[in-house]
Lab assay of single mutants.
Amino acid sequence: RPRTRITDDQLRVLRQYFDINNSPSEEQIKEMADKSGLPQKVIKHWFRNTLFKERQ
């Protein structure tokens, strides 16, 4: 599967949610997917990777 490119607008949506809650529920992930147009799987990976980077 090719790598998903996240646009600036999509990144802005993800960052807004991450700043509020870095561990979103399934419902919140679905909401983000609707707003950003990204697949839920991509959003889950983005949150996991971003949380890991923040903790380092």
Rank of each mutant, 00 (worst) to 15 (best):
R1V: 02
P2T: 15
R3I: 14
R3K: 05
R3S: 13
R3H: 15
R3A: 13
R3T: 15
T4I: 11
T4S: 06
T4Q: 04
T4A: 07
R5C: 14
R5Q: 11
R5I: 15
I6R: 01
I6F: 10
T7R: 07
T7I: 01
T7E: 08
T7H: 04
D8S: 13
D8M: 09
D9K: 13
D9H: 10
D9N: 06
Q10C: 03
L11A: 11
R12N: 10
V13M: 15
V13D: 06
V13E: 12
L14H: 01
L14M: 14
L14Y: 00
L14N: 00
R15M: 11
R15G: 05
R15E: 11
Q16Y: 05
Q16P: 05
Q16N: 07
Y17L: 08
F18E: 02
F18S: 09
F18A: 06
F18W: 13
D19H: 11
D19P: 04
D19G: 08
D19Y: 13
I20D: 09
I20M: 13
I20Y: 05
I20F: 11
N21P: 04
N22A: 13
P24E: 01
P24I: 01
P24M: 02
S25R: 06
E26D: 14
E27L: 09
E27Q: 13
Q28S: 06
Q28Y: 03
Q28K: 04
I29M: 12
I29R: 02
K30H: 07
K30Q: 04
K30F: 04
K30Y: 04
K30A: 12
K30M: 08
E31Q: 02
M32K: 00
M32V: 07
M32S: 00
M32G: 00
A33F: 03
A33I: 01
A33Q: 06
D34K: 13
D34C: 11
K35T: 06
K35V: 04
K35R: 07
K35W: 03
K35M: 05
S36Q: 07
S36M: 07
S36C: 07
G37F: 02
G37Q: 05
G37W: 02
G37H: 03
L38D: 00
L38S: 01
L38C: 08
L38Q: 01
P39Y: 04
P39M: 05
P39I: 06
Q40T: 14
Q40N: 14
K41W: 03
V42A: 09
V42E: 12
I43S: 00
I43L: 02
I43R: 00
K44D: 09
K44L: 11
K44M: 06
K44F: 07
K44E: 08
H45S: 13
H45Y: 11
H45D: 15
H45N: 14
W46I: 08
W46G: 02
W46L: 02
W46M: 02
W46F: 07
W46P: 01
F47R: 00
F47A: 02
F47C: 07
R48D: 10
R48F: 11
N49S: 10
T50K: 14
T50D: 04
L51E: 08
L51P: 05
F52S: 11
F52E: 12
K53L: 07
K53S: 10
K53A: 13
E54D: 13
E54W: 02
E54I: 15
R55F: 07
R55I: 09
R55G: 10
R55W: 03
Q56G: 03
Q56D: 00
